[in-house]
Design a protein around this nucleic acid. Structure first.
Length: 801
DNA sequence: ATAGGGTTAG
């Protein structure tokens, strides 16, 4: 027995939902040989390809014309001598290159400062993300003109503080069209479409930018139909707005509509072409993308990079490399796209080679490499780069944390998270999400609570993404109450939120609550998806609601348009089998449109054990052994079945079979967290400092258990995977030790939470039920596939698991 | 010196 001051993990630690999909698997991985669709020649393209790239100077002139009359800028009251103008140019020059210090020195050295100088400092600090300094300048400046106010508004917006931006807008003595436009696009950017609309309606003057702001509000927030309606309502849009509309369709993969629009455009600029090229490239239609690419009358870095990354992401690395080598100019994005292409297809040597010669590495380049190594499990390489890089941002940390967590090194992952917070690194949403899912993986409830507290302080609690992670963390850490609280507090719930809550209740054995949440979801007109139905069906199974489950199963296709997947059939086999309707379960299995897999046979085997159908159990087990000969859990399940039927010879045979096949038994462990220390126990563990106390207590418990009517379920059965031992000191399974320790150390009135890496054995399950009644304690046990809440002599699993 | 569209990393 070890006492550890940090979190100890035994792999494989099952994740709460039983399956861990490594994030790198989700990366797009198409084989390089995948057929490329033949370029389909868009007829309408040829004739209309007249271009009129707007010159920068013209644009500027245009803009000046637009704003003229509505603004009275440079109302400084000072005449600007040529010398002052020169100084102001020096300031903006420094600021453009991020040299805030030098700009500040120039500002101080000037003989005289005009409002333009102050404004240059203000906007310089803002574009360089020195928000505090900008605010300081704004407060100190002797005279503010419209530009100062507008600049400060954009500063607040950039800093994510919409309400302050709005306050400034309301407070400013005078507003011009720029102020209105700034607010409209700010609301658009932060998803507040209605507020953007309101601003638009209230704006006393409107120009093309105003209109475009409203259009962007719709497009960027996925309200394409509204955007299109607006777009169609006016015949005159600038190319910028055409492009925004185009991008909206492309983003949603609605390429036909994008193309229809593109073909009709009166003028196309390089952005229009880029949007289309990248749209087709991202959709995997590289033939069409290439065709457009070849036809584009002007190409800039974006065009080339879009084409390059299209090839790279679809695994066509040679083509990507050809584009890369031919590019007339490359920026860091082009390099990063090429490197990312290699990384995503596990060609780390080539990625590294490119990274090594890259002239303009930025943080992203480092992050891409780190992510690549981390996702390939080469954590030492990742760490080396991480330590070497000149600056780290939250993405670098997140890549390291996620990498460790995906490689099963949850403890190190959490350690990194803590280190990150200690270094004062600004934690972003993804860092919190990452930390929460790590806590969930190792059932670190206390740590999860601390992360929760910190993210509330950081103001991230209302986010859907973080909220879902929080909810999942509490579910997986066995605190269904806190999960429910988190669920209730979420202002916006998406499908994932509902799914997580439903599955959480189901896994904890609270089927009825799960179904209530499901009904509530339907009431609110949230459309369930296939994951929802897995949760619902398993909830029905756990609550013994057979008819309801059957009803849902048949309703899913009819009412929700969801075709049942293998997981749904597994739930149904489990549900029917548990209810003793083994025949129906078999019929269902035969009528499925796919072959039964090992988990389905496993469900059938489990049901056979409960209902004592040795023959069916045997045949199910045979199929499992064929498919997964190393699955030790199934041998155990079958032995238990034999034992229940009194077939001791067969139990012996199973032991021999396991030995002959070399099936390795996974050692069983249980652990419990008491006052931030995780105590781990193995079977018959005798190394704990308080072992005398624990064993004495267990002996006493044993006596009282017998008196209360607990009969040892097994003596001969091959328990779980923990080997049966005869010695007195070794007779207790790890979960029993952990529970005993919990009763001794966890304050009365608080639940005792124990985690086990394998399934709980039948004898312990029965004993813990009695213990919960005798001691008047709530005991929550997470085993390898579900949660058991023991209280008052019964368990939330209803004795079936 | 302030407001609008397109590419990459997480």
């Amino acid at each position: 027995m070890r006492r550890v001051t940090s979190f100890r993990v035994f792999s494989p630690t099952p994740s709460g939902d039983g399956r861990v999909i490594p994030r790198w698997l989700r990366l797009r991985c198409f084989s390089a040989a995948a057929a490329v669709p033949l370029p389909e020649v868009p007829e309408s393209l040829g004739s209309l390809a007249t271009e009129e790239p707007e010159k920068k100077k013209e644009k500027k002139k245009r803009r000046r014309r637009l704003t003229k009359g509505s603004t009275s800028s440079s109302a400084s009251g000072y005449s600007e001598t040529a010398e002052i103008v020169r100084w102001n140019k020096v300031i903006t020059g420094h600021m453009r290159w991020g040299r805030c210090e030098e700009a500040s020195q120039a500002f101080d050295a000037m003989p005289r400062r005009t409002t333009v100088s102050w404004n240059a400092m203000l906007s310089g600090y803002i574009t360089n993300d020195r928000f505090e300094l900008a605010l300081h300048v704004f407060r100190r400046m002797p005279h503010r003109d419209l530009v100062s106010w507008n600049t400060m508004i954009s500063g607040f917006v950039r800093n994510g503080d919409l309400s302050s931006a709005r306050r400034l807008f309301d407070e400013m003595p005078d507003r011009d069209i720029v102020s209105w436009n700034a607010m409209i696009s700010a609301y658009a950017q932060y998803g507040q479409v209605d507020a953007a609309r309101e601003m638009f309606d209230r704006a006393p003057v409107k120009n093309a930018i105003t209109w475009n702001g409203l259009l962007a509000a719709y497009v960027q927030n996925g309200r394409l139909e509204a955007a299109r309606k607006l777009f169609d309502s006016s015949p005159e849009w600038e190319t910028v707005s055409w492009n925004a509309m185009l991008a909206g369709y492309v983003h949603r993969r609605r390429l036909e509509e994008a193309r229809e629009l593109f073909d009709r455009m009166p003028r196309r600029d390089v952005v229009s072409w880029n949007t289309m090229v990248s749209g087709y490239a991202q959709a995997g239609e590289l033939g069409v993308a290439r065709l457009l690419f070849d036809r584009a009358p002007t190409k800039d870095v974006f065009t080339w990079t879009a084409m390059l990354s299209g090839y790279a992401q679809n695994g066509m690395l040679e083509e990507a490399r050809r584009v890369f080598d031919k590019m007339p100019e490359k920026n860091e994005v082009s390099w990063n796209a090429m490197i990312a292409g290699y990384v995503q297809h596990c060609r780390m040597e080539q990625a590294m080679e490119l990274f090594g010669v890259m002239p303009c590495r930025n943080i992203s380049s480092w992050n891409t490499m780190i992510t690549g190594y981390a996702q390939n499990g080469e954590l030492s390489h990742a760490r080396k780069l991480f330590d070497e890089m000149p600056r780290r941002d939250s993405i670098s940390w997140a890549a390291m944390i996620a990498g460790h967590s995906q490689s099963g090194l949850s403890e190190e992952a959490l350690g990194l998270f803590i280190e990150m917070g200690r270094l004062g690194e600004r934690l972003n949403r993804s860092a919190y999400t990452c930390a929460l899912s790590t806590c969930a993986d190792i059932s670190a409830l206390e740590c999860g609570r601390q992360v929760h507290g910190r993210l509330v302080k950081a103001g991230y609690a209302a986010g859907c993404f973080v909220g879902n992670a929080l909810l999942a963390m509490y579910c997986k850490c066995g605190s269904i109450d806190e999960a429910y609280d988190a669920f209730m507090e979420m202002p916006a719930k998406d499908v994932v939120t509902w799914n997580t809550m439903i599955a959480g209740f189901a896994r904890h054995g609270f089927g009825r609550e799960a179904l209530e949440v499901f009904d509530w979801m339907l009431d609110l007109h949230t459309r369930p998806d296939d994951v929802t139905l897995v949760g619902v069906l398993s909830a029905c199974g756990h609550a013994g609601l057979v008819e309801k489950g059957i009803g849902c199963f048949y309703a899913m296709e009819r009412d929700f348009g969801i075709t049942p997947k293998p997981q749904h059939y597994t739930c149904m086999i489990d549900l029917l089998g548990r209810a003793g309707r083994l025949g129906e379960a078999q019929v269902l299995m035969q009528s499925m449109p796919f072959e039964p897999d090992a988990t389905m046979w496993g469900a059938l085997l489990g049901a056979s054990r409960i209902h004592g159908d040795t023959e069916l159990g045997e045949s199910a087990a045979r199929r499992i052994f064929e498919m997964e000969p190393e699955n030790s859990g199934m041998y155990v399940l079958l032995s238990n079945l034999y034992a229940a039927a009194g077939k001791w010879a067969d139990v012996g045979r199973m032991r021999v079979m396991m030995r002959d096949k070399g099936v390795r038994k996974v050692p069983g462990f249980s652990w419990i967290e008491v006052q931030n220390v995780v105590h781990t126990f193995s079977v018959g563990d005798a190394a704990h400092p308080q072992k005398e106390e624990i064993y004495a207590f267990l002996e006493d418990l044993d006596r009282r258990l017998k008196k209360a009517g607990h009969v040892s379920v097994t003596k001969t059965v091959l328990h779980d995977v923990e080997e049966e031992e005869k010695e007195q000191m070794l007779k207790y399974h790890s979960e029993r030790l952990a529970v005993a320790f919990g009763i001794l150390r966890v304050p009365r009135g608080r639940p005792i939470r124990v985690i086990k890496n394998l399934r709980v054995c039948e004898d312990c399950h029965s004993a813990i039920k009695y213990i919960s009644a005798m001691e008047g304690r709530l005991i929550i046990l997470r085993d390898s596939n579900r949660f058991h809440h023991f209280s008052g002599g019964s368990c939330s699993c209803g004795d079936y698991w």
